[in-house]
């Protein structure tokens, strides 16, 4: 595989410079944006392999970028805040991963490499956030049923506990690829459940 082309979107220039120098070989930063509309325009123009995007940016934030571009490229959210609705929305809208900004450079490189290859990149805190979301959903359903299968819940919880996909595979006696597929399915379910929530909200509030 050749060099991975990247667009960096962050309203703090110090961050773009920092991430750019951390990426090193194997990545080429083809564009930088400070606002969501700038990022969307750049992605449309340059068609990068990967977009590394701050959650909070002028012009709609990372969520706007994900909504506009998730179908055409892979987007990783990079942010300082760990527990936010916006983040769940961004992931549900199709971001392939989320990393905290304090992630050390070597880990960042590895994670972005995996994201560029299409692997969902989940940090433990994001996994915990998604788990909490499904718990809330099943509480609201009232009958104790969860949208997640027991196996999916197990996988997600192990991610939240800091296990790598490889370790999870060993723990559950399944292949690493299977773990990845479970994570992808969980993302799909999150996406669906958020859509259902929106529809229910619209119906309840008489919005057509």
């Amino acid at each position: 595989m050749g060099v991975t082309t990247v667009i960096l979107a962050d309203d703090h220039p110090i961050w773009r410079t920092g991430v750019r120098s951390d990426l090193g070989d194997g990545f080429e930063v083809v564009g930088e944006a400070a606002t969501a509309p700038e990022a969307v325009a750049l992605v449309r123009e340059l068609g990068p392999d990967l977009v590394v995007c701050d959650l909070h940016m002028p012009g709609g934030g990372g969520l706007a970028v994900v909504r506009a571009c998730a179908a055409s490229t892979r987007i990783v959210m990079l942010t300082v805040s760990e527990a936010e609705r916006d983040l769940l929305d961004a992931v549900a809208a199709g971001a392939v991963g989320y990393l905290v900004k304090s992630t050390p450079p070597d880990e960042l490189r590895t994670a972005l490499g995996r994201a560029a290859a299409g692997e969902p990149v989940f940090s433990p805190s994001l996994a915990a956030l998604v788990l909490g979301e499904f718990r809330a959903l099943s509480r609201r359903a009232g009958d104790g049923t969860s949208a997640l299968t027991e196996r999916e819940r197990e996988v997600l919880q192990l991610v939240a506990r800091g296990h790598t996909y490889k370790e999870i595979g060993a723990e559950l006696f399944i292949a690493e690829k299977t773990v990845e597929n479970h994570v992808r399915n969980i993302l799909g379910k999150l996406h669906l459940s958020r859509r259902h929530e929106l529809v229910r909200y619209a119906v309840d509030h008489g919005i057509e």
Partner: peptide
């Protein structure tokens, strides 16, 4: 606060 968090994260990483 967001700016302070950003700066602290830069300090931590670099």
């Amino acid at each position: 606060h967001d700016g302070v968090l950003q700066t602290l994260a830069v300090v931590e990483r670099r």
